[in-house]
């Protein structure tokens, strides 16, 4: 644990100092600092990150849903601060079957379409979202195509390249 702490970027210390009471687990991806929070803590943490002048995360860059199969769903937010120029990734894991998350549309107008997309692709439910309709898919489609288990999965396995064989030569 101490080793991992040492490799964290200085932003981790800044966040710790600015938001001493926030409950999160810091980590690191190949590019950014990662904060892992529980769904219940998400809104408080993001609110803190946005409002604290030392952090000032005013821009929601991206929102990525990931199907972790037996571990439920994960949603990753990327926040950026134009003032300080730093990026943070927030990971929220929801248990299987109850993928409820608070909406961020109150904080970031940009979250609107990102959340609609995540909802239709993975089946997240964003409580309080003003317009929870399908965005990219058909209006009445209720399957979530980006889940690992989906109606067309057998075909996918046939089409895909089996792990172990070589890819194409270049």
């Amino acid at each position: 644990m101490s080793e991992e702490k040492a490799t964290l970027p200085p932003l981790a210390a800044t966040i710790k100092k600015a938001l001493p009471r926030a409950a999160y687990v810091p980590g690191l991806t190949k590019t950014d600092l990662d904060l892992r929070v529980a769904p219940a803590e998400l809104l408080v943490l993001v609110q803190g990150l946005k409002d604290n002048p030392a952090l000032d995360f005013d821009y929601l860059r991206n929102m990525t849903g990931i199907d972790m199969q037996e571990n439920g769903l994960e949603l990753k937010y990327h926040l950026y601060s134009f003032k300080h120029g730093h990026t943070v990734q927030i990971t929220v894991a929801t248990p299987p079957g109850e993928s409820h998350l608070p909406t961020l549309t109150g904080l970031y107008a940009a979250a609107n379409w990102h959340e609609r997309e995540a909802a239709e692709m993975f089946g997240f439910v964003f409580d309080g979202h003003p317009d929870p309709r399908n965005l990219l898919l058909e209006e009445d489609l209720r399957i979530h195509p980006l889940l690992k288990a989906h109606p067309l999965q057998p075909i996918e396995v046939v089409q895909g390249i089996e792990d172990g064989k070589a890819g194409f030569d270049f």
Binding site: R61, N62, T64, G65, I66, D67, K76, H78, A109, A110, N112, W113, H114, G160, I161, D163, G167
Partner: peptide
């Protein structure tokens, strides 16, 4: 933006496109 997640194997586990047109259009 490209958010890539790998979990072993020769295929990406997740590839997410953060598309600028998508976000601009939402405005």
């Amino acid at each position: 933006g490209v958010h890539a997640v790998a979990k072993g194997g020769n295929r990406p586990y997740r590839m997410k496109l953060r598309s600028p047109s998508f976000c601009n259009l939402s405005a």
